[in-house]
Write a protein that binds this DNA or RNA. Structure first.
Lengths: 203, 203
DNA sequence: TACTAAATCTAATACCAATTAGAATCTAAC
DNA sequence: GTTAGATTCTAATTGGTATTAGATTTAGTA
């Protein structure tokens, strides 16, 4: 009978290579965009030749799809972790802070994946867009629910449109990836100010 | 002696074609990104063959440069018009609203040009980025001054970082181009809510 | 009508892209 | 050490790209 190694080790190796390729792809997609990133470039960064990528991924589109999928998954997971640290029955204000912290953390700590999602908005093949739509919409739905809670609690004023507010917040958060430099403000500082300004304004 | 027409009319025609090409280029750059927009596509949209573009523009990069240049110019001009409608010695609050209205108006009324600037952030050749940097930084500087005024007037609280606040506001505004649909909220509604939330918060 | 200059087109160049099939190599078990 | 399977490479295919030079067309003038 064969030892577990014979089954597991090859799988692990394969998985490791896949992840390496995905990481390099995310890096290049986020910095140069989908179209101007070449498979040759990705392959070179992963110490391979372009043709070899096809052993792991069936096409460039499939590669991009998986990068985007992981990106949204990562944001969603990080937000989930922040929420888990709250007591059940958390208030809107607590939830908002957790959402902001999670979303920002994901964006600023793993910029290669997340900025691929953010920057390549209208510029990817429709097939790829469709493939990641479900996950994207599910995450958006979580934000919608949070906003509804804020309205129900009365924390969001009557004359503030909660969907517009959601778009404002997400705009701020996503845009951070454009200007954020790791040696600048800490994520914590950003979370505090974002939460403060959205709840209380600047004055 | 030749009539003015001989001098002016050809110039006008040439200028008209240039503008047509620029418009189509902006449209395609904004929707597909720099790399995946082909000169053939732009030319076709402008009722020409690809080679003919070179009579008007020396290269693809030059075309993109001019689109980006016009984009920033347009935002800057629109903000300028809003500011001119204020009395001299306008307050920070008045100024902020005018800036928000100008920036949003420019973005939402001429999305082809402005989203080219916004979406193609890290994905254009460095030569092009350098070419538009001065104008971009000048516009940013105007925002910085407004924020300083807010701090001086005491409208921006002591514990709010005015530069971070500026990045928040610009993030919101720029991100609008991602989700805005012309048949939705009016620009005025957005301006009112944005100003309100940034000044007073949502609660 | 014939001339001129502006505007556009044609056709070719040189290059780089994604993708594929089959050969070569590497790995690990027997 | 041999063998089988997993992994990578080589080399070719196909198609698209920006750019250019020179020919052609168009529009206005006299």
């Amino acid at each position: 009978m064969s030892s577990p190694i014979t089954q597991i080790k090859p799988v692990l190796k394969k998985e490791k290579t896949r992840l390496l390729i995905l990481d390099k792809a995310a890096q290049m997609f986020s910095r140069q965009g989908y179209q101007s990133t070449s498979l040759k470039g990705i392959a070179t960064a992963a110490n391979m030749k372009a043709g070899s990528l096809y052993y792991h991924f069936p096409s460039k589109e499939a590669l991009m799809t998986e990068v985007l999928d992981k990106s949204i998954q990562f944001i969603s997971d990080t937000v989930g972790e922040e929420i888990e640290q709250l007591d059940d029955g958390y208030t809107f204000t607590e939830g908002l802070k957790a959402y902001i912290r999670g979303h920002l953390t994901a964006i600023l700590k793993h910029p290669d994946y997340t900025t691929t999602t953010i920057r390549n908005n209208g510029q990817i093949p429709k097939a790829v867009q469709l493939a990641v739509r479900v996950k994207r919409e599910h995450y958006e739905q979580q934000w919608r629910k949070l906003m509804t809670q804020g309205k129900a609690e009365g924390v969001i004023r009557k004359d503030v449109d909660e969907q517009l507010l959601r778009l404002m917040i997400l705009g701020c958060l996503n845009w951070s990836s454009v200007w954020y430099k790791p040696n600048g403000d800490s994520i914590n500082t950003l979370v505090e100010q974002y939460t403060d300004v959205f709840l209380n304004g600047c004055q």
